[in-house]
């Protein structure tokens, strides 16, 4: 950091993007303490390379890329072997079809929307954390952070075909995990639905 105004600009930018950075870190990691630590590391790296940020409007995206790269490097250093999931277990699962068959809200005219409405933001986070990081990360980067699929592949440092395959499996796992989570947490009771405002 070369001068006071630049330092001040960094501080303003960093504080503004804290919620988004922490949310991304929390979705990528398995524990909130790890998420906070990852955000700190990303802030330090961003601070040291702030001069390379050419377009201030892209600051949020720039910091999310830094954080994701750091997370990927951490995974490599820890030598964590990705947990594969047998494809046959999830490939044929259809949340849409399961909801039609099981009909958890028998008096509803908007069954599928009511099912989604029974989830709080924290529930969605808990469902995501149930997924192996191998599949969770592409899902988070593509559908929550809205990176293009090619960018997801680049961020994860895998070929495009691998990213596409993991996204496919991740979506199936997410649908199955939503169904399992709703059953385990009694989300289908009318009381639970009413509390969450979907009735």
């Amino acid at each position: 950091m070369t001068n006071k105004s630049e330092a001040s600009a960094f501080q303003q930018m960093a504080v503004e993007h804290l919620p988004g950075l922490f949310a991304l870190a929390r979705h990528l990691t398995d524990a909130d303490a790890d998420a906070e630590d990852l955000v700190q590391e990303a802030l330090l790296k961003a601070y040291r390379s702030f001069g390379s940020l050419e377009e201030p409007a892209a600051a949020g995206r720039w910091m999310r890329v830094i954080l994701t790269n750091l997370w990927r490097d951490r995974m490599r250093k820890r030598g964590r072997s990705p947990r594969e999931v047998p494809f046959d277990d999830v490939d044929d699962f259809s949340l849409y079809g399961t909801l039609v068959e099981e009909d958890p809200f028998p008096y509803s005219d908007t069954l599928h929307l009511d099912f989604l409405g029974s989830f709080s933001e924290e529930d969605v986070h808990m469902v995501l954390r149930r997924l192996p990081e191998l599949y969770r990360a592409p899902l988070v980067l593509r559908y929550i952070e809205e990176f293009a699929t090619k960018e997801v592949a680049r961020l994860l440092d895998v070929p495009l075909g691998t990213a596409l395959a993991r996204l496919h499996r991740g979506r199936k796992l997410f649908e199955k995990a939503m169904w399992d989570y709703a059953n385990e947490t009694n989300a289908f009771t009318s009381e639970a639905a009413a509390v969450r405002g979907c009735r």
Binding site: P19, A23, E121
Partner: peptide, 9 residues
């Protein structure tokens, strides 16, 4: 997924 993932700080 885009609108309901927790962003709480």
């Amino acid at each position: 997924l885009a609108t309901n993932a927790s962003r709480e700080l």
